[in-house]
Design a protein around this nucleic acid. Structure first.
Lengths: 230, 230
DNA sequence: TCTGTAATTATTGTATACAAGAGCAACAGG
DNA sequence: CCTGTTGCTCTTGTATACAATAATTACAGA
């Protein structure tokens, strides 16, 4: 058994043999990331089990896993809620993710295969087209694909995992930004710098551009959060 | 020693209201980090529940949480085992943690309070004293305290959390190194550089020194792993 | 009306029972 | 001797029952 485990592409979401609990987890997670359940919302076990058509047991296990990832807060004997990080925590998380993404960009500049590089450039162009459009959700998704292509090109699955983990926790706050009309254009010029640096395989430039890009996003998110009194 | 583990051992996470599952989790985690259960070892639910004096339910929840942290691998319907990352995955994890620790060092150089700085220097000295000693475990612990003091001085709890998470997964491999006699001396000169840079609040130097320190550790760990055919 | 306390309620934490699939062993056939 | 199949066993996955406690409400007294 220890022989050729080969390349078990250890994807976070890889569900080879579907167990119920796995689908329950991704189901709840999706609702949180998509904003169906917002920060602070109560996650009643019975309610969820009824909604998902399973008993409390798999729901509980899913909630525990999500809590381990920081997406959900569980207070003993007081139930689970969608995590509601304080302003300070949000700042900290953005700081971490900006560093990780910057590192991913550096690695990508160094290690991206030709195929991966093409994927990045393609995702960049797709973003550009949607920047002008009114469809914020489409741009949000395209943006995610662009970043995801860079994470993949870093060729470090553990790094990707870490970034995605932190990113999920920030999803509610990033989402807000996307709906600000001016942000998309600014974001595009930043994406342009990143894409160019990567294409030229300039590690330092790519790293710095990515860090700045995420930090600007962070500033905007925080400003918005402040305005909205989150 | 099946006796009740009412003794709250050294737990970094403060548990306000102790629930059984919480203690079960840290109990299993401790056994993994301390090497009682090594990579690949099977974690039988019934066996653990008997050993810990609880039913399967809390054991299962604990295992799920540990799996979420990457410390345990769960294959559906095939049980849980202590995670056994491939060589490639170990490299990736070291790469991530070196970057995170380097970032923590940078932040610490910038943000450490005087008290925090004193704690770092104190931990550094404690390491130095133990470097010459034969007590590998004591040095291992002192080393952890030194690094922990720097993480704390970065004043970014989210970053500390990430580092600790990755660090736990690497514990079995780091542990090996500590028992290599030459490593301790080398490590000390590296610690010296880090401590000096922090004291002088030189962000760039501290960052680089820490990155190099962890990467050297990584190289040694991998060499050793290779020798031991892990 | 406000406040502190006590009973109540509702939800979580844990244990146990049952169902279902994976792994193993015995065995038949080559 | 090896190999593929078949049935059994053992562990996990899920459901449900019960216990314990946090939150809420009702109420008495100021």
């Amino acid at each position: 058994m220890s022989g050729n485990s080969a390349k078990t592409t250890d994807k976070p979401e890889s569900i080879l043999r579907k167990t119920l609990s796995a689908t329950v987890e991704s189901d709840i997670e999706q609702r949180i990331v998509e904003g169906v359940y917002g920060p602070g919302d109560r996650l009643d076990e019975e309610e969820l089990s009824a909604k998902l058509g399973v008993s409390r047991t798999p729901v509980r296990e899913a909630l525990r896993k999500l809590a381990a990832h920081g997406l959900v807060t569980i207070r003993p004997r007081a139930g689970a809620t969608v995590a509601r990080p304080s302003m300070a925590e949000i700042i900290d998380l953005f700081e971490v993710v900006s560093e990780l993404e910057a590192f991913a960009a550096r690695l990508a500049a160094h290690r991206a295969t030709d195929t991966q590089m093409r994927a990045i450039q393609q995702a960049y162009k797709a973003c550009g087209k949607l920047a002008a459009s009114k469809d914020a959700q489409a741009y949000f998704d395209a943006n995610r694909i662009f970043h995801g292509a860079i994470w993949a090109a870093a060729n470090n699955p553990a790094l990707t995992e870490q970034i995605m983990s932190v990113d999920k926790r920030l999803a509610p706050y990033r989402r807000q930004i996307t709906f600000h009309p001016t942000r998309k254009q600014d974001s595009e010029s930043e994406h342009d710098q990143i894409a160019q640096a990567l294409a030229a395989r300039q590690q330092d430039v790519a790293e710095r551009a990515m860090r700045d890009h995420v930090m600007i996003l962070s500033d905007d998110a925080l400003q918005l959060a402040r305005d909205l009194r989150i």
